[in-house]
């Protein structure tokens, strides 16, 4: 993945989705109005976060197998970048909620659980900082990460569906894809998701390379 083509692809997809997302036609819906275009910006943040956390848990499992320090560093850095994307998703969601639901934070199950799942990963970083010894830190934090990942999935995709929520896709509230996400929106939404996921992965590789250099500098 050291090639440049996918970085260019990411840039092109994100630029395309921003321009087409603002210009192409969308369904005319009450209350939502033009904010339906936020689908191209708010939702890909969460997809990028989930992909980054998946990378994180993948390297955590790998680290438990191999005891390799680079795997541990990859797990931390992808979790780090994932938290940034999660925070961006939370803030854009709050702004969107202000103008459609009426409040920035209405203690909606989806909002609460999303915040909790980000806090879970903040706890992962705090746990790492609390342990001095490297081998022990890698092992304990990898195990924590393996538990945090399914918790995040349950908090984001299972629990909100069991309650009444204003968020589309929850509590008998149909998601966009059931009837609103028509073919026009799909043409922007899928490239937007892929583009932002690639951007997230790109930032993660840069973060990892910096961490790797720092690590080498410390050892010598």
């Amino acid at each position: 993945m050291n090639k440049i083509w996918w970085k260019i692809l990411a840039a092109v997809l994100v630029i395309y989705s921003t321009i087409a997302g603002l210009l192409l036609g969308v369904p005319r819906l009450a209350i939502l109005n033009e904010t339906i275009r936020n689908l191209y910006f708010h939702v890909p943040m969460w997809f990028a976060m989930i992909v980054l956390f998946s990378i994180s848990v993948f390297y955590s499992i790998k680290n438990l197998n191999s005891q390799n320090e680079t795997d541990d560093l990859k797990a931390v850095e992808s979790a780090n970048v994932g938290i940034i994307f999660g925070l961006l998703g939370l803030v854009t969601g709050a702004v969107w909620a202000k103008f459609t639901w009426g409040q920035f934070w209405s203690f909606d199950p989806k909002q609460n659980f999303a915040a909790i799942s980000i806090l879970l990963y903040c706890a992962y970083l705090i746990l790492r900082n609390a342990i001095e010894e490297e081998q022990k830190r890698a092992k304990i934090s990898a195990i924590y990460n393996i538990f945090a990942f399914p918790m995040m999935v349950v908090l984001l995709f299972v629990l909100p569906r069991l309650q009444d929520s204003l968020h589309p896709g929850n509590g008998g509230n149909p998601g966009f894809n059931s009837y609103d996400l028509d073919s026009r929106m799909r043409m922007v939404f899928y490239p937007a998701c892929l583009g932002w996921i690639l951007i997230g992965y790109w930032i993660y590789t840069i973060k990892f390379r910096i961490r790797n250099l720092q690590n080498q500098a410390q050892q010598f």
């Binding site: 936020n38 961006l88 702004v95 840069i206």
Partner: peptide, 24 residues
């Protein structure tokens, strides 16, 4: 039609990622 809400969200994402780039 609330289009400025979308503008705010795009700006938030750009600001967040740019701030992160500066820290990197």
């Amino acid at each position: 039609g609330k289009i400025y809400v979308v503008v705010i969200c795009i700006v938030i994402i750009l600001l967040g990622l740019l701030a992160y780039l500066f820290s990197l």
